[in-house]
Simulated scan of single mutants.
Amino acid sequence: MSDELTPLTEDFVDLYVDANEPPGSETPLVEAFVALGAQVRVRVWPTRRGPDELHWLFLVALPLQSFLGGFGGRLADDAYRRLKSALHRTPLDQAPEAPRPVVLQDTATGTRIVLGPEVDDEAYRKLRALDLARFRHGTLRYDATEARWCSVSDDPEDTGT
């Protein structure tokens, strides 16, 4: 298996699962995306040790701008509810000392959005309104203290909302 994420059409979502996760742990996320009309391909990410060890539980590769901004009000609310429910049914918080998040990765730009246990209802609302064009690359995390999405890239021009 290649380490590269293959960009897919907007009808597809690739769900990468850590090889160390028990079979079926991805089922809630698969069901959530299928319910939204996406075709989901589940792929197992090879086990890594050392500095390349995975820091996420699941990585979901999809067209983020379409997913976050392309939904109309009611459909966006449904998508949010399903995703939130799926995240609560995954083993996201079974290791409280170092919970591994679910990461959404844009297939077009590689921008990543980290969905950890600190992401609450307000964070999801702000995420839906987030203009991803402001972030050329990098990773976005929710800063619960400042109540905003922040870039954690090394690019000083990437700022949060």
Rank of each mutant, 00 (worst) to 15 (best):
R48L: 08
G69W: 02
L15W: 06
A19W: 00
R89C: 10
F135R: 06
L115D: 01
D77L: 11
H55D: 10
A19P: 03
D93S: 11
A108N: 12
F12D: 15
L132D: 02
Q65W: 08
G50I: 00
A144D: 08
L36T: 00
P91Y: 01
L62R: 05
S66C: 07
D121L: 15
D78I: 09
R49C: 10
V119P: 11
S153T: 04
P22F: 12
V44G: 07
P63T: 00
P46D: 14
V44W: 03
T111Y: 06
R100F: 04
W45Q: 12
D11C: 07
F67W: 05
R48Q: 15
R141N: 07
S2L: 15
C150G: 01
V119I: 11
Y80C: 10
L15I: 10
R49G: 14
H55P: 06
R128C: 12
T9S: 15
T27R: 05
T90W: 03
E157P: 05
W56K: 02
P23M: 04
G50M: 04
W149F: 03
D11Y: 09
Y80R: 12
R112T: 02
L83Y: 01
T27S: 12
D143K: 03
R100W: 01
A144N: 04
E157V: 03
Y124N: 05
D77V: 02
L29W: 02
R125C: 10
V60A: 14
R43L: 13
Y16E: 05
E31W: 00
L83S: 05
P101G: 08
T107E: 06
A35D: 15
D121C: 14
R74W: 05
A86H: 00
F12L: 15
T47F: 14
V42M: 02
Q65G: 08
R41C: 07
D154S: 15
L127P: 12
L92V: 04
F33R: 06
Q94R: 08
E31S: 08
S153Y: 02
Y16S: 11
T159M: 15
L36D: 03
D158P: 06
S2T: 13
A133W: 07
E157C: 06
S153L: 05
S66Y: 08
E31Y: 03
A32V: 01
R43T: 11
E157M: 09
V119G: 11
C150H: 01
R100V: 01
D3A: 14
D93K: 04
E118A: 13
R148E: 10
P7C: 12
A147E: 13
T139N: 12
G160C: 08
A38Y: 14
T47Y: 15
L54V: 02
R100Q: 09
P91M: 04
L36Q: 13
A61Q: 07
A38K: 14
D78C: 12
E122W: 07
V13Y: 13
M1L: 13
T139A: 13
I113D: 01
L8N: 11
F33N: 02
K84Y: 13
F33W: 11
K84M: 10
L29T: 00
G50T: 02
P117T: 08
